[in-house]
Nucleic acid binder design. Structure first.
Lengths: 105, 105
DNA sequence: TCTAAGGTATGATGACTATCGAACCTTGTC
DNA sequence: GACAAGGTTCGATAGTCATCATACCTTAGA
């Protein structure tokens, strides 16, 4: 039986729009969200994202994305997996993801 | 003949999504945009916005909104008028305004 | 001409942000 | 056990942000 993730995630109802917009305002974070949005149901390994930033900076962006409620993260063995909180976001902020994705895809 | 506004506004094609999202991430600014969006074609006097902040802070927010391309401002006599850049925004960022407005209206 | 109202300009402040490198921890693999 | 890879933690830094009070400017009206 796989252990539950020890990583903390906010309840989607506690997430506020300001934090989400702030998270999406950063180009690197928005790129991650857009790549995830092309395959909304699929987990992806964090190490596969190509971004021109240090890995400690990546850690920072993962945290911002996670705490803003945009992504779900799961630790597996040595690595981290990341996934869009697709259903949660559609329920909490209907249309937002689709709109953002349509603007840059 | 009324003089052309001397206030500078960015070309809508020079506006980038990060700046718009950053502008919308602030609750006070988002409140202004939402109030304007209820009457998108209508100018409104800046002094009629009720916000719990100092007037110098209001000036700051007007500038952020203007430079991010969200609003158009016009000086008339002693006062300032503000208006949503509705058509520009619909063309540049289709769906964005409607989505944001629907989330909090 | 005096005055009140709408706005701007100018610092200043405290908080937060993105970024980095270096050190460290953990996990999987020889 | 040794080692590499994936991530985190920990300062540190430089920049930006929202906020304020004060002083000032401009316009309209008495």
């Amino acid at each position: 039986m796989a252990p539950a993730s020890e990583i903390e995630h906010p309840d989607i109802d506690d997430v506020d729009l300001s934090s989400v917009l702030l998270a999406l305002a950063d180009p690197h974070r928005r790129q991650v969200i857009l790549e995830l949005a092309r395959d909304p149901k699929t987990e992806r390994q964090c190490s596969t994202f190509v971004l021109p930033i240090a890995k400690s900076t990546k850690t920072h962006h993962w945290r911002v994305l996670r705490e803003s409620g945009l992504v779900y993260q799961r630790a597996v063995g040595n690595g981290l997996y990341i996934q869009l909180r697709d259903e949660d976001l559609r329920r909490r902020f209907p249309g937002l993801l689709d709109t953002i994705a349509a603007l840059e895809d």
